Lab assay of single mutants.
Amino acid sequence: QVTPQEKEAIERLKALGFPEGLVIQAYFACEKNENLAANFLLQQN
């Protein structure tokens, strides 16, 4: 279960064009650090 703040962060990451499953994995792998997760996702392409 995610908090409203976490859900907002996940939605912002999804808005970058990444699928939800990948976003969630990256977000939690980066210890819920939205900026770190965004950098991680962008570097995967």
Rank of each mutant, 00 (worst) to 15 (best):
A29S: 09
E34Q: 04
E20W: 02
E6H: 11
L42D: 12
Q25S: 11
N35A: 13
Q25F: 03
I10A: 00
N33Y: 01
Q43F: 05
E11A: 13
E6C: 00
L41D: 02
L42K: 15
E34F: 04
E11T: 12
P19L: 02
F28M: 15
I10R: 01
K7H: 10
P19K: 07
F40I: 08
V2D: 07
P4D: 15
A9W: 01
T3S: 12
Y27A: 01
L36E: 15
N33Q: 09
E31L: 04
A9I: 14
R12Q: 04
N33G: 01
R12S: 06
Q5I: 10
L16F: 05
I24G: 08
A9C: 04
A9D: 07
N33D: 13
V23D: 03
A9P: 02
Q43H: 02
Q43C: 08
A37D: 01
K7C: 08
L36S: 14
A26S: 09
A38L: 12
L36K: 14
C30H: 11
E31Y: 15
E20P: 09
Q25P: 11
R12L: 02
Q1S: 07
L13A: 01
T3W: 02
E8P: 11
L22T: 15
G21I: 07
G21D: 15
F28S: 14
K32Q: 08
F40T: 09
Q1I: 09
Y27I: 02
Q1E: 09
V23C: 11
A37Q: 00
E34C: 03
N33W: 00
K32R: 09
E20D: 08
K7Q: 15
R12W: 02
A15R: 02
F40M: 13
L42A: 12
K32S: 06
E31I: 00
P19C: 07
Q43K: 15
R12P: 01
F18K: 07
L42H: 03
A37T: 14
E20I: 06
P4A: 11
E11L: 08
I24Y: 14
V23F: 00
E8V: 10
Y27W: 12
E34P: 03
L22K: 15
A38H: 14
N39K: 13
E8D: 10
P19A: 10
L42Y: 10
Y27E: 01
C30R: 05
E11H: 09
Q1T: 11
Q44H: 11
Y27N: 02
A37I: 02
R12T: 03
C30N: 14
E11Q: 10
Q44W: 06
Y27R: 01
E34S: 04
Y27D: 04
A26L: 02
K7E: 12
G21K: 15
G21F: 04
I24V: 11
